[in-house]
Design a protein around this nucleic acid. Structure first.
Lengths: 136, 136
DNA sequence: TTAAATCCTACTAGTCCGATAGGGTAATAG
DNA sequence: CTATTACCCTATCGGACTAGTAGGATTTAA
């Protein structure tokens, strides 16, 4: 299960990608349209801006906008910012690797192998789909 | 990320599947071999027994054993017992479906479609691999 | 009868999620 | 200049969940 944070983030990005280029969308508009708590969405968009996905403009008439083309934003990278690891166990994560304390030898661990299989498959989808692909 | 509960459960089942038929393995043996807290493992094996995967015998010389052949135990079904939903969002879960409160129409939700894709792919692995497949 | 093992319930410390509160800062309209 | 709009930032918090822990009841073999 992914967190609401990730789900909301994806929805917000999808919303922004549907706008015409150059349009600034205030948080309130997205929050109302997608039924998300405005304050919560605020912190999510902040993360996405700091991660380099979004630009923003303050003050009256301000708002958020996509910095890159939707087709150049991989879903996998959004996931890593908002959710963290994509793998199901830390010991098979490429970007957030951590050793399992209970496992003396990963190569002899049955679970390890299974999890690598799942990770590779999920990654194949997430690395190959962009914001442009999944937006309706 | 999956819980330790699921990871430990998979490890324990893997361990049991490596035993000769008819052998009873006490919790303590599995716990020591796999570096799992015995008490915690106790509750996990209890769930697996109640779910019909394991048989047990009490008293001296007692222990746990697989009720079915390892090749007849799908990883997906173990997952559903220990972890719950396999899907990344409740609104695409086959066995644990729940409507998203923020989403008025699933068919118009971009995230929904993406999540279905991931679910189907993960499911393809989990439904088609058995305990026998992934044990080393 | 004793030791070994499962069974079962209840409790808990800690962590994380999903938000909320409350203001600070910048930009713009008028 | 001033009011308004909107982003920026930190702190806090209740509730749920995780990963155990505690303590004993029950069953069986020797």
């Amino acid at each position: 299960m992914i967190s609401n944070k990730t789900k909301y983030g994806l929805k917000a990005l999808a919303f922004l990608s549907k706008q015409e280029k150059g349009i600034l969308v205030p948080i309130s508009t997205i929050a109302e349209s997608e039924n998300i708590s405005q304050k919560f969405l605020e912190s999510i968009l902040l993360s996405l801006r700091k991660a380099g996905f979004l630009g923003s403009k303050k003050g009256k008439g301000g708002g958020y906008y996509l910095l890159k083309d939707a087709k150049d934003i991989k879903v996998a990278s959004i996931f890593r910012i908002l959710e963290g690891p994509i793998a199901m166990v830390p010991c098979v994560s490429l970007n957030f690797y951590e050793k399992c304390s209970d496992c003396p030898d990963e190569n002899k661990c049955s679970v390890h192998r299974l999890m690598i299989q799942i990770r590779d498959n999920t990654l194949a989808i997430l690395e190959n789909s962009t914001l442009a692909d999944f937006v309706i």
